[in-house]
Design a protein around this nucleic acid. Structure first.
Lengths: 114, 114
DNA sequence: CGGGATCCACAAGGATACTG
DNA sequence: CAGTATCCTTGTGGATCCCG
């Protein structure tokens, strides 16, 4: 997804373009607690493949949400950090956190919703 | 996605299970302004196919986010309305709206981010 | 008008192997 | 350790047709 294309008129759609993906939300969730290394993210993002993680991180970097810092070492060390814009996703994240919590409380006593 | 399965421990993941989809977010956006008919939603959700719209509406109904009211007429008339839980997604929606707006302001002057 | 049933295409994601 | 390159599988969504 390149930002060369015009951003959609509806701001919600803009957000969806940039964050409308399960993995991206979870990456932000993890980075909100601080800078993380690639391996830490991979472990925390239960089940993500390195290909997918790498590609998402690249896009988010391109979109100005995160920064990538490479330490010229052997073995390599790469750290990912939220930018200021990325940090501001905390509002969205917290809203999702709150809503999910309430939903769980409301429905955790049911065994089935079918 | 059936809720018979245990909801994930992280509330954010719970939210993602229920709303981690572009179309669902946009459906909520439209229904936040009031009850809508199937055709209205389809028109407003630029480009969605009826199959996809129907299936998402079914899932959201099963998950307790919306209600479906059928008027026994010919031709049929079906209305969709947010439940109370669905209405509470307004917090999430507004957070996404705000963030998208800020992002657009921040980057609308750039022609490229590559 | 709303939607069920099919068929199909494509892209996203998983697995694996290799490398600086 | 953090990738890149490849291959392959899956399922999501689009298109179409038909029906009450």
């Amino acid at each position: 997804m390149s930002l060369n294309e015009k951003l959609p008129p509806c701001p919600v759609e803009t957000t969806l373009m940039l964050m409308g993906d399960k993995w991206k939300v979870l990456i932000v969730r993890d980075l909100l607690t601080g800078t993380k290394r690639f391996g830490e993210l991979k472990k925390s993002l239960n089940g993500i493949s390195q290909k997918v993680l790498t590609s998402h991180l690249r896009i988010m970097e391109k979109n100005g949400l995160i920064t990538r810092k490479v330490y010229p070492q052997v073995p390599p060390k790469v750290e990912y950090t939220l930018t200021e814009v990325g940090q501001s996703l905390k509002q969205v994240h917290d809203a999702m956190l709150d809503w999910g919590s309430v939903y769980k409380l409301k429905y955790s006593t049911r065994t089935s919703m079918v």
